[in-house]
């Protein structure tokens, strides 16, 4: 994506390269080309481009990718915060 990049050094994406089997699934599902294949192992090539959608982690057959995935809009997160603190608010019925 040209011109649009989000904050640096915030993405929680982690890859345990030693345990990677190099199947390439993470490369297939990542819409931001965060991964690259280094011989028989995947490597995180552009961590700052990660939008934490979680596609790579969910599709990794050996479970060596982790990321704090989830919805990322401010009002949704405020609602989430309210829910965590058991505060009842008028729930909006529509978002994305």
């Amino acid at each position: 994506m040209t011109g649009l990049r989000y904050l640096k050094n915030v993405a929680t994406l982690k890859l345990n390269q030693a345990a990677c089997i190099g199947c390439g699934r993470c490369i297939e599902v990542c819409p931001h080309q965060v991964f690259a294949l280094d011989g028989r192992k995947a490597r995180i090539d552009d961590c700052d481009a990660c939008m934490e959608c979680g596609a790579c982690a969910r599709n990794c057959p050996v479970n060596v990718i982790s990321v704090d995935a989830g919805m990322g809009c401010a009002s949704g997160m405020i609602n989430e915060w309210f829910q965590e603190h058991n505060i009842r608010v008028m729930k909006s019925n529509s978002c994305c």
């Binding site: 994506m1 989000y6 993405a11 939008m51 934490e52 919805m71 809009c73 401010a74 978002c95």
Partner: peptide
């Protein structure tokens, strides 16, 4: 700024951790 921050939910490139960081500082 609040409404702009809320637009992160619609974009195709912002991350949850980034929005959390912005909210902690911004709100």
């Amino acid at each position: 700024a609040f409404h702009a921050l809320n637009f992160t939910g619609c974009t195709t490139f912002t991350s949850r951790s980034g929005v959390k960081k912005e909210m902690r500082l911004g709100i």
